[in-house]
């Protein structure tokens, strides 16, 4: 393609007239975030297929796409729906995974973030096994909550984009996000409590062993 890259709206207009090449350019533009979005909802096994299917469905629905609306959040909504439909045995297969390098503790960053962490569950999440704990808690959330978190903190969508991508009024994005964070924190608290019970239990076992020994 020569000259300045075409705007999304222009590509949409061309694609709507049957220009598959123009649509291919749109796909290229948003395939990364589409696959990531599908991954957040449905996990690695379904992410590619869900994204591909969503792009095809979006193409077929282009006639219903409003010209003055941004393409990306509309696309993401279709991707998320497709991914939700494909999520099969969610709990077992749909989890996010840590990068191999990140599974090891990144000391500097964690230390900095954990400074004021003392007794809060967030603080606990940053301690030694913080990342595993945090990702486990995120994986326990409903896909809708995971999406909120991903859109807001990882993909950095604007509130207007989030509203369009989630299909909710802009005014409710904040409150929805707060509720998702509250649920995440509750999950972290539960897992921390469970850990403590586990430690006490293990501690008790050790003292019993000591007595027996």
């Amino acid at each position: 393609m020569e000259g300045r890259p075409l705007e999304d709206t222009e590509l949409v207009r061309l694609a709507r007239r049957g220009d598959v090449g123009a649509y291919e350019e749109l796909v290229r533009r948003y395939q990364e975030i589409a696959v990531r979005t599908a991954y957040v909802v449905a996990g690695a096994a379904e992410a590619q297929d869900a994204a591909q299917e969503a792009f095809v469905k979006a193409y077929r629905a282009l006639d219903r796409f409003r010209d003055d609306a941004p393409f990306r959040p509309w696309l993401l909504r279709i991707v998320a729906n497709e991914a939700i439909n494909r999520r099969r045995s969610a709990r077992r297969q749909a989890g996010l995974a840590l990068r191999a390098a990140a599974a090891a503790v990144d000391g500097a960053a964690e230390g900095r973030l954990a400074d004021d962490a003392a007794p809060s569950p967030e603080g606990a999440a940053l301690a030694q096994e913080g990342r595993r704990e945090l990702i486990a808690a995120i994986n326990e959330l409903r896909p809708e909550d995971r999406l909120l978190i991903a859109y807001r903190y990882w993909f950095e969508l604007t509130e207007a984009e989030m509203a369009a991508a989630l299909g909710c009024p802009t005014g409710t994005v904040k409150s929805r996000s707060s509720r998702a964070l509250a649920r995440l924190r509750a999950t972290l608290e539960r897992s921390r409590d469970a850990d403590e019970v586990g430690r006490e239990h293990r501690g008790a076992l050790r003292s019993e062993e000591a007595i027996d020994g």
């Binding site: 992410a47 840590l98 990068r99 973030l113 945090l134 990702i135 903190y153």
Partner: peptide, 19 residues
């Protein structure tokens, strides 16, 4: 704090590449 943590946490996730 949770928000700060989450913001940084995106880098730790093993997102698949498109395709």
């Amino acid at each position: 704090q949770l928000e700060r943590v989450l913001g940084a946490f995106g880098r730790a996730i093993d997102f698949p590449a498109a395709g």
